[in-house]
């Protein structure tokens, strides 16, 4: 490593924090793109956003500035992004589901789900049901048996998350009253994972992607997906385990981390939009990015706008249909 490079990088960054390189060109893009991250810096989605921004910046040839605008369960930042010009110089990296459901249903958001184009659902996180490694619960059947006894088990989920809905839905489908479970509704993945690793709760449900740090202290019981996830072969797909009770529940993804642009961008600047999508695709599919993603355990799937739109809409509609269960 070269000391001069570090010093240069530090000095440039400290003094200018990445100044705009404005070169007069006709082609898009010709200046810095701002990428909104409606969450605080340092989380899993933020990390994915920053990796993606850096690869995309190389493809597009302009700097991409990731700006975190946290708050209000991702509402503050999403609202901000919705009010920026749809000229291709404002993009957003966010999990539209589950969060946008709450914005639209409860918070009076001025946007609708199809005001945006989900360019690529780059990482679809799945819900994983886990117990502490010291727990006596071994299988989903053990947990269901425990749930049938009032007040016996405690569990943890993130309040209002896909896991929260999936868990209540599973209990309802099995005919188990919600009051049987002492359910702690945490305010984030970190506290939920800590409580799970420390056996403060009997079981917990969070996104499996990002839970790697606690995998040594937990056992993975079930995954809320249609098929086994090769990364966690021991977690049984939930509907497979529920088959013996003759019930089935709809599969909700934990979150869909996606590149988002406003629909007007495609309508007003179709050429820019094509340039953007093509560059983004090249960035994601490049061998370097794929390698980095494998090393760093983050999502680097190219689903493209059509498939991504379907994924988001399916989750959105399921959440909408079942969110009444939270009441």
């Amino acid at each position: 490593m070269n000391l001069r490079n570090i010093m240069l990088a530090t000095i440039t960054s400290v003094l200018t924090f990445g100044s705009t390189v404005a070169v007069s060109q006709d082609a898009y893009p010709d200046h810095t793109i701002e990428m909104t991250g409606p969450y605080s810096a340092g989380g899993g989605t933020d990390r994915l956003a920053r990796f993606t921004a850096s690869a995309l910046s190389d493809e597009l040839g302009v700097p991409i500035n990731v700006v975190n605008r946290p708050g209000g369960g991702l509402f503050t930042g999403t609202l901000y992004f919705f009010n920026q010009a749809p000229d291709g110089y404002n993009i957003m990296f966010t999990p539209p589901t589950p969060y946008m459901v709450n914005h639209i249903e409860n918070m009076g958001a001025p946007y609708k789900i199809d005001d945006f184009i989900y360019v690529n659902a780059q990482e679809v996180a799945q819900s994983l049901l886990m117990v502490s490694e010291t727990s006596e619960l071994q299988t989903l059947e053990d947990i269901i048996a425990g749930l049938r006894e009032p007040g016996k088990l405690s569990a943890g989920v993130i309040a209002g998350s896909g896991e929260h809905i999936s868990l209540l839905l599973m209990m309802k489908t099995l005919g188990i009253p919600a009051e049987n479970l002492r359910l702690v509704t945490f305010d984030g993945g970190g506290p939920t994972r800590t409580a799970l690793a420390g056996a403060q709760i009997d079981f917990g449900m969070v996104a499996g992607q990002g839970s790697e740090v606690i995998f040594d202290q937990v056992r993975k019981i079930a995954v809320f997906a249609d098929e086994i996830n090769p990364d966690w072969p021991e977690a049984v797909p939930v509907n497979e385990a529920l088959a013996q009770f003759d019930v089935e529940i709809p599969i909700l993804d934990s979150s869909v981390r996606s590149m988002v642009v406003r629909r007007e961008f495609k309508e007003q600047y179709p050429e820019r939009y094509e340039t953007f999508v093509a560059a983004y695709r090249r960035a994601v599919e490049s061998p370097e990015f794929q390698q980095a993603a494998e090393d760093g355990k983050f999502g680097a799937v190219w689903n493209g706008p059509e498939v991504s739109q379907e994924i988001v809409e399916r989750n959105f509609n399921l959440l909408l249909e079942h969110s009444a269960i939270l009441e």
Binding site: S40, A41, G42, G43, D46, R47, R50, G190, R193, T194, V213
Partner: peptide, 12 residues
């Protein structure tokens, strides 16, 4: 696991 905002950035 991050204990606060500062360590969340370190974790990143």
């Amino acid at each position: 696991l991050p204990g606060g905002g500062g360590t969340a950035v370190l974790l990143a």
